[in-house]
Design a protein around this nucleic acid. Structure first.
Lengths: 239, 239
DNA sequence: GCAAAAGTGTTTCTGTTACACCCATGC
DNA sequence: GCATGGGTGTAACAGAAACACTTTTGC
């Protein structure tokens, strides 16, 4: 410890740089099965380190914005996305996560609905990837995504999270498909229906989805609070 | 916002300063009832801002240490404590949390056992306080403690957290008292016992506690993993 | 009519709650 | 013996899981 602190005080004290990044999840139909699966947008690094590799969207923290505002702004600038659901994930500050200088990242995670996801400004340097089939990403971003997935599954098990991945109107079967995709297990349609119906904030509408080749299912909508808006206090509410 | 950003770009761009703080919980008998209650150590500010007010122990992040190591080191230096249970709580980065310069705090929370808590180097500037009767603290530290308490309660409800507040050996009634103190409600001794016995990592010993004026209760011990050691990877394990 | 998924009903199972009761020790 | 909390037993209750069955559409 004495050697370390001596070292630090000798060197000019440049503080660790602080960045904000975000893991964004959305549903897209799998190319193979057509069933909904989790996807996330990544941006290609246009500078060192990790030049050319894919990374989570992010950037530095500006002076006049809160952490969450920084995440929002950065997302909008780099990908065009403005998620309605945005929440802090974790602060990563390992010593060897960036080649060269010391980097601390405060990471947020977001859920976007199909209409929001459609606004992505995709390009050579911005693309959606399947969350379960990622190549090797810049920094420790593979680890971060893995952790975000774990948190998503956890929150799904008892929370009204799934709605933030669906559109304004949805069938109960669609909700079930989301659960099945994220938790990766099949659920009994009858029991699932009953459980959902007994939770608050989930209201039936008079509309039905047509065009299926079977009985038209009723459409529902989510009327609950958004746990974490885009502009908010740092303290998360209880779930 | 335009006034602010103009202001910022005129000024020399000094990045927000980054600090690590920790909320430490331990059990102490209440002065009034004698029943165990939650306490936490605070340190008195010896510089501006908030000079003289009580605050969470913390300090800057050194270059050669991870976030968690920084929390550990700082705790040891300021209070003499070396918690075996230490976990990241949240990153606080609101604009107005510090008078003067912009401050981002990555906050950890810790649980210490009685033997660890006894090693506190108490002084004029380091003291234990009841968690539910705090005066006005420096910065937004009241809010932070409130959030830490919420997290503690949440984790208690289904986790093997309580053991980290107790010593090596304990009776089931002691565990129940911890739950009652933290959750602030009475629990049926019989049912509580059964539930605990059915969870893993909780082993009976052959010893009994004597000196009570009733039947000597059996002593148990916790044989499970420490969810987050003092030296660890940034990724928390699943609970 | 047939296929397919929506939607309902019902039984079983499992874990929780409430509470009666016995046990072992100090005084 | 009596008070006190340790420790066990058990019936009642509540919610989850399993699964049979009816309904409504497209073709």
């Amino acid at each position: 410890m004495s050697a370390t602190s001596a070292n630090v005080s000798e060197r000019r004290v440049q503080p660790p740089s602080l960045a904000i990044s975000t893991v964004i999840f959305a549903l897209r139909p799998s190319e193979s099965s057509g069933r909904p699966t989790l996807w996330l947008p990544l941006v290609r690094r246009i500078r060192q380190p990790y030049l050319g590799q894919w990374a989570l969207p992010g950037g530095p923290l500006a002076h006049s914005e809160s952490l969450q505002d920084a995440a929002s702004r950065n997302l909008l600038e780099t990908t065009g996305l403005a998620p309605r659901y945005l929440e802090q994930l974790y602060a990563f500050g390992g010593l060897d996560r960036s080649a060269g200088q010391r980097l601390v990242s405060i990471v947020y995670w977001a859920l976007v609905q199909p209409d929001e996801a459609a606004l992505t400004r995709e390009s050579e340097n911005v693309r959606w990837f399947r969350a379960d089939r990622l190549e090797s990403l810049a920094f420790d971003h593979n680890e971060i995504v893995k952790y975000a997935l774990w948190r998503l599954r956890n929150k799904m098990e008892y929370g009204s999270i799934a709605y933030h991945l669906l559109g304004e109107r949805f069938t109960l079967a669609q909700v079930r498909e989301v659960y099945e995709a994220v938790l990766d297990k099949e659920l009994d349609p009858a029991n699932f229906r009953r459980q959902l119906r007994s939770t608050p904030h989930i209201e039936p509408t008079d509309e039905h989805l047509t065009g299926t080749r079977h009985r038209p299912p009723r459409l529902y909508r989510y009327a609950g609070p958004v746990p974490d808006g885009s502009v908010r206090q740092p303290l998360p509410a209880s779930p």
